[in-house]
Structure formats: structure tokens, C-alpha cells
């Protein structure tokens, strides 16, 4: 019994799960109907579904960020990438009102699949740029991605011409607001990306390669892993997840705001990765943990909203969470506690 318990607590998913459960319990305490799920208009409806749906963009970006962080990198430009990709898709679809057969309908400027592919391609381009600077020129990741973070919102403003671009094309709203079999479409997208990633990192050697590059880049290069190419494509992938998230966000709010779309999203994504148990120093990474981390952040936000506290105070709570998680991850603190535990154990 004790053995299984210690095995459980040693699992990397233990602490993230405990945090999430505690948060959910707090939510239930303040709002007894928290877990209620009802069927309305043929789809599921309730707080939990709402949290899952709203956490989808963060979950996607955090998965990309997990891989980047696993290679000892960091990508602080994902928020800007979201703004750019959102601006591209909104500007391309746009939508205008035409009267067809006496009925008012909205048509898109360019076919929707083309617009989506274009937005993802632009996001990929952002990622290739980051990858080129980090893996090609050998810049520190935080500096290399800082460049796109600074310039990216300017580029997005350029695409939207300084305006908030509103989308009027109905089918596009399906991505962010639609339901398949009563479950939000965005969750299917998260599931597909997760499945692909799990398949690639657990069933092929890719996951091992990424971890080895994060643990010791020089040794992994000597053992024949093309570390450079790997790092390059990891940044590209991270930007693509930001692009997919941008599609969901733009579709959900039916507009693209170059100034505020994805603002501070990079910080939330990094926080989600850290909460999920992946060390910010690189190496071992936990995709499922990251997803739970993203859910923790969204549940926390939901709890703050439902408590009626001004949402701005959210930042103070997040700050406390950041400090707490880092302190738990800090080996120095663990040593301190261990020493203390042994000392009291010895005298007792």
C-alpha cells in the first residue's frame, strides 16, 4: 500500500493533478453547479466544457513550447505569431455582404481553406525565422525570439492596417465556436495535435533525440544527432501550433486585433509547461503534464472570475503560482528541506 502511494506521488503527473483537483474543489465550493453538464441545442454546455474550450489555444501553444523548452530553448514570440497569423486569416477571409437569390449572405474574399493554409504558412515562416536565428546563427533563444516579439506586432498592425479586422464569414466561426457530436471543435484539434505528437515522440526516437539535445547538446551531436536541424524544426513546429491557436482565437472572437490578440500568451504557455513538471533547464518533457498545466491556468482564471474578484488581480495570483512552482522545482530549496528533515529526523 505504502509502496504504491510513494510510486504515485513520485509520478511527474502527481503534483499537477493534485493542483488541478484542489482548484476544481475550490470551484465547487464557491459554485456548487461547477461540474454540471447539460445538453443545450444539441451540444454539451457547462463550466467544465467552457474551461476546456477556452484553454484549447493555450494547450496547443504550450505543447509546442514544451518541445522548445525540452531542447533548452524558449520561444517568447508565440504571442506575436498569434497576432500575425490571426491578422492574415482575418484579412484574407474578411467577408462582405452580397445578396444572392434575394437572400443576404456573407462570402469570403478568398476561399477559406486557402486562407487557413496561408495563415499557417505565415506562422511556419515565423517559426523558420526563429529557428534560423537560434540554430543557424547560434543566438540565445530568448534574444532570437525577442526580435520577432518586438517586431511581430508591428507586422500584424501592417497587415490589418492598424484596424481591428472583423470577420463576417459564417463557416469560419465553426473552428472556434462549432461543435461535433456535442463537443467543441477546438478540443478535436487539440486531440489530433496531441495524438500526432505522442506518436512521434513516444513511438519514434524523436522524443529521445529532443531530450538528449536538451540534456547535453554537445554529447548528442557527437553521438550523431543532427542537433541543429532538430532545434530548427522544433521552433518551426512551435510557431505552427501558435498559428493553429490563432485560427481558434480569431474564429472565436470573430475578429483580429493586432494589439491584443495573444497578449502575454507566451508567458502563460511557459507557465503551463513549468506547471506540468517540465524543467525550464531542458531535458525530460511531459506533454500530458503541460496540458494539465494549461487547464490549471484556465481553471484558476475561471475561479477568479466566478469569485467576483476583479480579473486584473489574476496577475497577482499567477505571480504567486510562478514563484511557488519555481521554488518547488528549485534543487536548492529541496536540499534545504532535506537537510532540515534529516536533522529533525536525527534528533527525534
Amino acid at each position: 500500500m505504502k509502496n504504491t502511494l510513494s510510486q504515485l506521488t513520485r509520478s511527474h503527473l502527481f503534483w499537477p493533478c493534485v493542483t488541478l483537483v484542489l482548484l476544481c474543489l475550490a470551484n465547487v465550493y464557491f459554485n456548487p453547479g461547477f461540474f454540471d453538464i447539460e445538453v443545450k441545442d444539441g451540444h454539451l454546455y457547462g463550466s467544465v466544457i467552457d474551461i476546456l474550450n477556452r484553454a484549447a489555444p493555450l494547450m496547443l501553444i504550450a505543447m509546442g513550447m514544451t518541445l522548445v523548452i525540452a531542447t533548452r530553448g524558449i520561444d517568447i514570440s508565440v504571442g506575436a505569431t498569434v497576432a500575425i497569423a490571426g491578422a492574415v486569416v482575418a484579412a484574407l477571409i474578411g467577408g462582405s455582404l452580397v445578396i444572392k437569390d434575394g437572400v443576404q449572405t456573407y462570402v469570403s474574399n478568398v476561399p477559406m481553406p486557402l486562407a487557413i493554409v496561408a495563415a499557417l504558412a505565415v506562422a511556419l515562416l515565423c517559426g523558420l525565422w526563429n529557428g534560423l536565428l537560434v540554430a543557424g546563427a547560434g543566438m540565445q533563444p530568448i534574444v532570437a525570439t525577442l526580435i520577432l516579439m518586438v517586431a511581430g506586432r508591428g507586422v500584424a498592425q501592417l497587415i490589418t492596417e492598424g484596424q481591428i479586422v472583423t470577420v463576417y464569414y459564417e463557416p469560419f466561426f465553426f473552428i472556434g465556436n462549432g461543435f461535433i457530436f456535442g463537443i467543441p471543435v477546438s478540443l478535436y484539434i487539440v486531440a489530433v495535435v496531441l495524438a500526432v505528437l505522442l506518436l512521434l515522440t513516444k513511438r519514434t526516437a524523436l522524443g529521445l533525440f529532443i531530450e538528449s539535445v536538451g540534456i547535453n547538446p554537445v554529447a548528442s551531436r557527437f553521438s550523431g544527432i543532427s542537433a541543429r536541424a532538430l532545434v530548427f524544426w522544433v521552433y518551426a513546429f512551435c510557431a505552427v501550433t501558435a498559428g493553429i491557436a490563432a485560427l481558434i482565437i480569431t474564429s472565436n472572437v470573430k475578429s483580429a486585433d493586432a494589439n491584443n490578440a495573444g497578449l502575454l500568451l507566451e508567458l502563460d504557455a511557459i507557465l503551463a509547461v513549468a506547471l506540468g513538471g517540465t524543467s525550464l533547464a531542458g531535458g525530460r518533457f511531459y506533454l500530458i503534464g503541460t496540458l494539465i498545466g494549461a487547464l490549471i491556468i484556465q481553471t484558476l482564471t475561471y475561479a477568479i472570475y466566478s469569485l467576483g474578484v476583479p480579473p486584473e488581480i489574476n496577475m497577482v495570483v499567477k505571480a504567486i503560482v510562478v514563484f511557488g512552482v519555481c521554488l518547488i522545482q528549485s534543487p536548492a530549496l529541496r536540499d534545504l528541506l532535506m537537510k532540515h528533515a534529516f536533522r529533525t529526523g536525527g534528533t527525534a
Binding site: L267, I270, L280, P310, I313, M315, V322
Partner: peptide, 23 residues
């Protein structure tokens, strides 16, 4: 003292200070 990365510590400080403004 805790060997934390400056990036993440000051990130927390950034959230905290901005949040305190709104308090």
C-alpha cells in the same frame, strides 16, 4: 539563493507588480 533562472523570477515579478497596480 534558490538558483532560479533570472528570466522566470523576474517574469513572476512582472506579473506581481502589474497585478499590485490593479489592486
Amino acid at each position: 539563493y534558490f538558483r532560479m533562472q533570472p528570466f522566470i523570477v523576474t517574469l513572476g515579478g512582472m506579473f506581481l507588480a502589474r497585478g499590485l497596480c490593479y489592486v
